[in-house]
């Protein structure tokens, strides 16, 4: 512990500089995906309600189930992207990627750049509309070996990817990565 304390005070793991947020437009991208999902869920419920409209032994009055689903789905689509966006933070430090995310389950992750096997930038249909890219970092880890940072502006994501690649290639240690 003494030796640890004597180490030059470089940016430390958690309490270094403030974290960087994702691009704000990711909220809209998430919302669009969530609306799509909610509609998929809502339609069968509505169908059930309509087909049981005149059923003599209905236990609930018409519209309770579909109304409930509609309200909760709306709340979900409105609130969740905001909460998720607020929970997300990351920092690209000289030797590691640090990230925090998760609404219900907070996760803090440090991936040393030395341990990265390769880096991808990917986009899905919605993200393409917003010119966002997700940085996918592959490690050889046994669990959750892919670390994803969504919602970066595409050129920036590509720049990070290229820098990380160069960083890995110029590793002065000749040993194998794992």
């Amino acid at each position: 512990m003494d030796a640890d304390a004597s180490e030059p005070a470089r940016a430390d793991v958690a309490d270094g500089e403030p974290l960087r947020s994702l691009a704000p437009s990711i909220r809209a991208a998430w919302r669009i995906k969530m609306v799509g999902l909610s509609v998929l869920l809502f339609l069968p419920v509505l169908f059930y309600d309509l087909t049981h409209l005149f059923s003599p032994n209905a236990q609930l009055p018409f519209g309770v189930i579909s109304g409930g689903v509609l309200v909760s789905a709306t709340l979900y689509c409105l609130m969740w992207p905001r909460l998720r966006y607020r929970a997300w933070g990351f920092a690209l430090r000289p030797e590691e990627i640090y990230m925090e995310h998760g609404v219900l389950r907070h996760i803090r992750t440090v991936v040393p750049l030395r341990r990265i096997q390769h880096v991808d930038v990917s986009q899905d249909l919605v993200e393409r509309e917003f010119a966002l890219g997700r940085l996918v970092v592959h490690t050889a880890g046994s669990r959750s070996s892919d670390v994803v940072i969504p919602g970066l502006p595409l050129p920036e994501a590509e720049e990070i990817r290229d820098k990380i690649k160069r960083f890995i290639l110029e590793d002065p240690l000749v040993e194998e990565p794992v």
Partner: peptide, 9 residues
């Protein structure tokens, strides 16, 4: 390899 600290609700 990678470091994780998680906290559920």
């Amino acid at each position: 390899h990678a470091f994780h600290a998680t906290a559920s609700l």
